[in-house]
Simulated assay, not measured.
Amino acid sequence: MNNVQWTTEDFQVFLINGLDERMEALTQIIRPKFQTLGEVFSAYFSANTGDEFFPHIAKHARRTVNPPKDSWVAFAPYKRGYKSLPHFQIGLWESHLFIVLAIIYEAPEKGEMAERLLAHLDAFDELSENFVISGDHMSPSAVPLDEARHEQLNQLLVRLRDVKKGEFLVGRHIPAEEAIKLSSDEFMRLAEETFDNLLPIYHHMIGK
């Protein structure tokens, strides 16, 4: 069964006080959905990139006091981790669902990837106006792509290239109140459509 339907309860997990309490709710309520998505979309990326992809569900293992404010499943062509590579994610904040392609500061080749994207800014013109970009994976905020072309987009990519902590995310944010209205089929179609649109940008990132 590939059914994943989001509920108000999923998003309210991030309102639960206490690290242990919130982690228990994440494990029981959200992680089974991430496991399903992990199976479905690791197969999708393997089929559509020619590389074997693996799912990575956030463990939040380093946390000792503060409970996580978001959680996700990531997809990358490396079994032992994803942070050093460009990767795809499906995840939740209390306010919204996100479906994104990300390069975060741990990626050792992010400068080269930024250069490739700067050389292919026109690829972003193929994305619809409801896509967003961000320079910080730790923040729930993002800028609508149609407001960011091309100056702010260029600035984020230059920062990704030149600043050690520079990051870049592009994808879709779906407000929680909209996400819970989607049927399982509607959500899975939306996720696949989003990834279909992001794959050309991913291929530019990796120089393929």
Results as ranks from 00 to 15, higher is better:
I29Q: 12
R31C: 01
K33P: 01
F34Q: 04
T36R: 03
L37P: 00
Y44C: 11
F45M: 07
N48T: 10
T49M: 11
P55Y: 07
I57T: 06
I57Y: 04
H60I: 04
A61W: 02
V65G: 00
N66V: 05
K69V: 13
D70L: 00
S71W: 02
W72K: 04
W72F: 07
A74L: 05
F75C: 03
F75I: 01
P77V: 01
Y78T: 07
R80H: 08
P86I: 06
F88P: 01
F88Y: 12
Q89G: 04
W93D: 00
W93K: 03
E94S: 01
E94V: 02
S95P: 04
F98D: 01
I99L: 11
I99A: 08
V100S: 13
L101N: 05
L101H: 02
A102K: 05
A102Y: 06
A102Q: 10
Y105C: 13
Y105K: 09
K110M: 04
E112N: 10
M113Y: 15
R116L: 14
L118N: 11
H120M: 09
H120Q: 14
L121E: 10
L121K: 14
L121H: 13
L121V: 12
F124Q: 12
F124N: 11
D125C: 10
E129T: 06
N130H: 14
N130T: 10
G135E: 09
G135V: 03
D136V: 09
A142S: 15
P144G: 04
R149Y: 09
E151T: 15
N154W: 13
N154V: 14
N154L: 15
Q155S: 15
V158F: 12
R159Y: 09
